[in-house]
Design a protein around this nucleic acid. Sequence first.
DNA 1: TCTGGGGTCCTAGGACCC
DNA 2: TCTGGGGTCCTAGGACCC
Length: 335
Amino acid sequence: MPMGEALRRCPDAIVVPCRHGRYASVSAEVFAIFRRFTPLVEGLSVDEAFLDVTASQALFGDGAVIARQIKDAVREETGLTASAGVAPCKFVAKIASDLRKPDGLVVVKVDDVRAFLDPLPMERMWGVGPKAAERLRAEHFATIGDLARAPLARLSSLLGSWGADVQALARGDDQRAVVPGRGAESIGAEETYDQDLTTRGEVERWLLDQSARVAQRLTKADVSGRVVVIKIKYADFSLKTRRVTLPESVRDTDSIFEAARGLLDRVAIEGHRVRLTGVSVGGLHPGAPTRGLFPDARQDRRQRLEAVVAEVADRFGGLGITRAALLTGGRSRAS
DNA sequence: TCTGGGGTCCTAGGACCC
DNA sequence: TCTGGGGTCCTAGGACCC
């Protein structure tokens, strides 16, 4: 729930700030442990990854042995428990790892895949969320086995072109390879406000703040992007997104904010109650922008300014340096 | 119960070009 | 001058995941 609501209900609550930097560094330690066993590590999120250990078994033992070693190393070196699933394909491994959290280890051998999947509720499947589950349930589907056995035409009429993929997965047929080193495809910042924003000025101030944070993260990750997206959620939770593809990629606060402000002309603000705003940059590629929207000298200064701001934030936490426009008379964040 | 913040992927329609 | 198919890019929205 929004922090404001939590504190209303629980005025004596102790609020502990998130430590994203800490989570990132522990995540790096854990991923480094994974890479001791195979270079084929595909990160899924900060705390989850696929490992292809097919070629590592001669060195370390079979999948179950490797999973045990990784769990032990993670516990010894970071103090964290980890859950693992060992299976012939990604889809089954993912389900297996979810089954006995925390500190679980579930092994599914090739010949046991169908027997393992069949009785599980279909909601266990990756990609079957509340909406799809509701539709399937109405047609009396309940387990993954039901999906595996259904006439394909029936699944296709319910799920469209996705039906065939779902059935293949339900039968344990997943040919997808483990693809290491996939970087982020977009980087964004957003906030839900404790009190709705009602004026364009307030919304712009937050978009500037969010643009600055995105610029910092882009700079730190050494990537730039051409697509700028804004997100506006109203008090009734309806959502609007507007995006623009720029002629050149960007990564500095001013360029991102200028694009965001332009997009703001295309959504209604005055007279509406805005509960959330967000800015993100996609279409990412490695490195600084090759050519900027501004003359070189100016672009160059912006780049250097952005690098310094990122470094200060890195050393002192949060926005060590910020813009004067962000310091005056605004409303506080919900969390 | 009403709803964090960070993402990914897919679809459908429109513009544009050859 | 009109028509059509195919490809690509862009945009908005939705479902889903951690």
